[in-house]
Simulated assay, not measured.
Amino acid sequence: MKILLTICLLLITSQVFAKKITVYDCPTEADARSCNNCKKSSYMNIKVNVNTNKVLLQHPESNTNTYLQTVKHEDEWIAKNTNFASLWTVKETLEVFDEDNWEYLKVENVFYTSTNQRRIFREQKESMVNGKYYAMDRGLTNYPFYWCGK
């Protein structure tokens, strides 16, 4: 009995909450936000650690894990040939309010010094609002992909 109480206490005090959701592919952002008109895609486990401000996304079908956390990388140069020198910036932010409410944003920008052009290389948004999951991923093609989960 004491062992069972100890395990329960450890689980409660760690503040790591796991939630299994069904993930759906959605044609538009509006559909993903409402989680309507979407096709069932897979399952995902979401573990939120409020104390460390981290979110773990586990995809059992593909056996992959994704950790969301706040990391900032700025002004990192990538240049093998000076004619194609570019400035690459990556900004990630994660704000965890509680296990059912969090927001993640990752934006990667590339600035090409030869043409003085800036492009969004990739933009990724994920969130949980009142227990409903939303995600958007847009790369160089500018055609975003949307998902929802419940």
Score class of each variant (00 low, 15 high):
30 A>Y: 07
116 N>G: 11
117 Q>M: 15
12 I>P: 02
132 K>R: 08
101 N>G: 09
12 I>E: 07
129 V>A: 14
75 D>G: 14
149 G>W: 01
130 N>T: 01
16 V>F: 09
133 Y>C: 11
67 Y>F: 12
90 V>Y: 05
11 L>A: 11
106 K>A: 12
105 L>P: 04
72 K>Y: 10
55 V>K: 00
45 N>R: 01
58 Q>V: 07
91 K>Q: 13
111 F>V: 08
95 E>V: 12
9 L>S: 14
22 T>D: 14
116 N>F: 14
64 T>H: 07
90 V>G: 12
5 L>I: 08
111 F>T: 04
103 E>T: 05
90 V>S: 12
74 E>C: 10
49 N>G: 04
1 M>R: 01
140 L>R: 01
126 E>G: 13
5 L>E: 03
11 L>G: 12
111 F>H: 07
106 K>S: 15
1 M>C: 04
102 W>I: 08
137 D>F: 13
6 T>F: 13
145 F>T: 00
98 D>C: 05
56 L>F: 06
148 C>D: 02
114 S>I: 07
104 Y>E: 09
37 N>Q: 06
139 G>M: 03
19 K>F: 08
53 N>I: 01
29 E>W: 07
128 M>R: 09
33 R>N: 09
91 K>T: 10
130 N>G: 14
140 L>D: 03
76 E>N: 08
76 E>I: 11
88 W>A: 03
14 S>Q: 13
39 K>V: 09
132 K>S: 13
81 N>D: 14
49 N>S: 06
49 N>M: 02
111 F>C: 01
70 T>N: 11
32 A>E: 10
62 S>D: 10
28 T>R: 05
50 V>Q: 02
110 V>T: 05
52 T>M: 10
129 V>E: 14
33 R>G: 02
120 I>R: 10
89 T>N: 15
146 Y>G: 03
12 I>T: 13
74 E>N: 13
44 M>S: 08
51 N>T: 03
23 V>F: 09
34 S>G: 05
121 F>S: 09
8 C>H: 03
120 I>Q: 13
129 V>P: 01
